[in-house]
Design a protein around this nucleic acid. Sequence first.
DNA 1: ATCACTTTTCG
DNA 2: GAAAAGTGA
Length: 510
Amino acid sequence: MTRPVAVWWVKRDARLTDNACLVEAERLGLDVLPFFCFEPSLLAADDTSDMHTNAQWQALSGLRTTLRKHNADVVIAHGEAVEKLAKLHARVPFTHLLSHEEIGNEITFRRDRAVAAWCRERGVAYQEFPQSSVRRSGVNRDRLQEMWRSRIANARPLPVPAIHQSDTLRQLAAATTFPRLQAFSVNSHWQPVSEADGLNTLDAFLTHRGRSYRGGISSPNTAFTAGSRLSVHLAWGTLTARQVWHAVRERLAALDPDDPQSARWKQSLQAFLSRLHWRDHFTQRLESEPALEFQTLHPCYRDLQFENNEQLHTAWRDGCTGYPLVDAVMRCLAATGFVNFRMRAMVVSFACHVLHLDWRLIHPHLARVFRDYDPGIHLNQLQMQAGVVGWNAIRVYNPTKQLTDWDSECRFVKQWVPELQDTTPEHIINAKSVSGYPGPVVPFTERAKWMASQLYAKRNSPEAKASTTAIYLKHGSRKKERVSRRKRPSKSVPPKKTQTRGLFDDLPDE
DNA sequence: ATCACTTTTCG
DNA sequence: GAAAAGTGA
């Protein structure tokens, strides 16, 4: 009467919809036992924080609630994965271990390898299923479009299959409880993470909020509602890119051409889809080049010396640089775990180009204050904004210009930097001294120019130029041919039509 | 000539 | 991204 058991090892995929592990268990006709492990070695990592552990706890709590409606439950463990799996195996001799293919940092990769080795030793069939278009260990970027088409665009999200779980298994799972961790206390500033919250967020974006996406995501005052807010769900796997992609495509197809609002919706949703696709481009780069967690993709920057002044680092981290928008963003992140892309890019640019801090030095803190921390996205964006990828122009964000452009009334600044509560916007923007708020820790223009010159000097060395092409071919975008443009078209030439941007042109984000 | 806006180039 | 260059009223 007892069927063989497949353990579904839940990691960043605490959801029932579009879950290949559950579908596979059903296909094999196995009982399924979901298993989640809070791992001390991961909890202690310098890029992990309570914000992340709390997200996983919420996702898992949601999963448990849903599973119970299916008359099933999840085993919750606290300990190292191999050790806990072995202990479970002694109790329930499962034949299969199913999990999603995680593109993470070195710690999770090594952990996955150790689990695979344990499975081989024990004769447990271990299978990992991709949950994005990223190809494991694949480096051929020419085939990425094809991967996206076959895995995302031309494949429907998987429906929730029947879940078979014996009473014995269910009782065993139900008896396991959450470990007592500080991270599990509720913080109302943090965005909720669960499959149900993910679906609600997606729905609200597609029915109301999404209209303002285009034009709304740049300002920190509007981005909290105009942004999709799906990043946490994609990061922790309470939604998949495939679910989101198809939901957005359906919404686009359903737009009423007679509705004057439709044009705006269309622009917004297409801009969003483009970014959704870019996620995988970056994740693929980390999968192909895991060393970029520790060193720059381009060799010419590896011997670059950074000032790494500890006072400047602390001032940046705590939001005390004397640059109001930078400080507001750092404090907002620490409190909420979220801010829009542009503001994140600005604080990275500021730390690297103005404070002269190594991107590896600022990496752990940022990872910890991003509730949507996803190593593939984070590490690539970090290197890109630090200007060490090699082929993009070096982007230096001017915090004063950003303030004028996106928070000219200083609403966001005042919300997070109460010292400036009673100061007028003009006063703040012109950096007049305010008692109780520090002046600029370092001068912007001079320091930014100096760092840019350092970076360009590295890049322009003949050896560097030689390797740039090779690296670009391996890791750059495939979409647009890099045609050398005519310097100055003659007057007689018919006006060239403005090149319409495709979804995947080499202009990530803003 | 000037202004507002877009495109191109690039420490 | 920012600045310079271009465009068209």
